[in-house]
Computed example of a mutant assay.
Amino acid sequence: MDFDFQWLLLGLPVAFALGWLASRIDVRQLRTQQQSAPKAYFKGLNFLLNEQQDKAIDAFIAAVQHDPDTTELHFALGNLFRRRGEYERAVRVHQHLLGRADLPRAERERAQHALAQDFLKAGLFDRAEAAYRELLDTPFRVEALLALLTLYERSRDWRAAIDAATDLETAGAGSFSQRVAHYWCELAQEAEARGETPAAEEALERARAAAPRAPRPVVMRGQRLARAGRHDEAMRTWAALIPVDPVSFSLVAREYAASAVEAGQQAAARETLRPLYERTPSIDLLQALRQLEPQAVTRRGWLSEHLAQQPSLSAALGLLDESASESGTLSDAELQGLRQVLGNAAKPLQRYRCAACGFEAQHYFWQCPGCQSWDSYPPRRIEDL
């Protein structure tokens, strides 16, 4: 049977028309998908800006379904899940990203960082540590080390914390010497609790080497000496704080006075503490001076002066104790100081507090100025509750 070329001439235009129609349908569908994905994306952003997180998540999920290869949408969705506390869903989103073989290295590292944050927020500290460790050779190294440092502090793994802080200093993230000193002090306390005196001493030396001006190693070393009955050495150790950090010396002022009494050096201790108190007066220094002063009249005079300069409840209580021990009446100046102290202490307690939001006010309100609630103020002042 002979082939009729007439049918070929008729079929070519038909085939061309069908191909053109199919291509137009594919292009139109592609354009529809490309238009719907950005629309859903911007819709999600709008919901997010209006703090409508539920609707924002729905919009982002729709956008991801239209364009599953868009990593930015996955990151946005995962971050939204994490902010809402839906950590399991956030983990799934970021693990899905990591499972993609075509993901660029930079995006993979970003997804790993987001996954580590998910684990940390979820309280899965072991998995968070492992995830952050995988970031140590990436541009997220500093962020990973900071997160690891926080994890080690929470778990009280002080040696690992020292290593992380040292690595951070090497990476140029700032000085961590004060923190390292604290970590060594924590190790010293642990060794002391186990009865390992040499290890505790070595840890304190490491702390002082890490931060020579840090007060905590000096405070702890003096306390160890005092517990061992070596009060002269304890006093000399604590006295080294005065020229370096006189404010921190107040933390051990009473212990310093107690050691001075045990060592029979009350007069020398008074000569050390009195100028320091005049420069930086504090109730701790005043109480230490009271421990060292045998004359009740002198102690009472110091308390009265302190009340006039810095009204405090502790000084007022001390003055009442001194007057009671002497069985004497208070002078007008002492009474005035007591009135001022008690008045200042009573003011915060003379307010009304809203039961709904905690807003405090000197006057009673029927409608709270803070939360606008009605009848939320109990008709009793704070000191009566």
Rank of each mutant, 00 (worst) to 15 (best):
E153V: 00
L115V: 01
Y152G: 00
Y152S: 02
Y132A: 02
T150H: 10
Q117H: 11
R156M: 05
D126H: 04
A165Y: 00
A165W: 00
R105T: 14
L149W: 00
Y152L: 01
A130W: 06
Q117G: 09
A161D: 02
R159P: 05
A128D: 05
E107H: 05
L120V: 00
A144S: 13
A147F: 03
T150R: 15
A111E: 08
A106E: 14
D126R: 06
R110W: 12
R133L: 05
R133N: 06
L151M: 14
R159F: 09
Q117A: 13
E109F: 06
E153Q: 09
Q112D: 06
L115A: 05
T166S: 11
I162H: 00
A164R: 07
S155T: 04
L146C: 07
L115G: 04
F140P: 12
F125Y: 10
T166A: 13
E129V: 08
A106K: 10
L146Q: 15
L146W: 05
A130P: 08
D157H: 07
L148M: 15
Y132W: 04
D137I: 00
R159E: 15
E109H: 09
Y152A: 07
K121N: 05
L148K: 09
R159S: 12
T150W: 05
A144L: 10
A116F: 01
V142Q: 10
E129W: 01
D157Y: 03
E109T: 03
A106Y: 04
H113S: 10
F140I: 08
L124I: 08
I162D: 00
R108Q: 15
A114N: 14
A165Q: 00
R154V: 07
I162L: 07
L135M: 14
Y152D: 06
H113L: 14
E129C: 01
R105Q: 14
T150Y: 09
R154P: 06
V142R: 12
L120K: 07
K121D: 10
E107V: 00
A165P: 00
T166Y: 03
Y152N: 07
R133H: 07
Y132R: 02
R154Y: 13
D137N: 13
F140L: 11
A165K: 00
D118M: 06
A147K: 03
T166F: 01
F140K: 14
V142C: 03
R110A: 14
T138L: 12
T138A: 12
R108G: 10
E134G: 12
R108L: 03
R154K: 14
L146K: 15
L148V: 08
R108H: 14
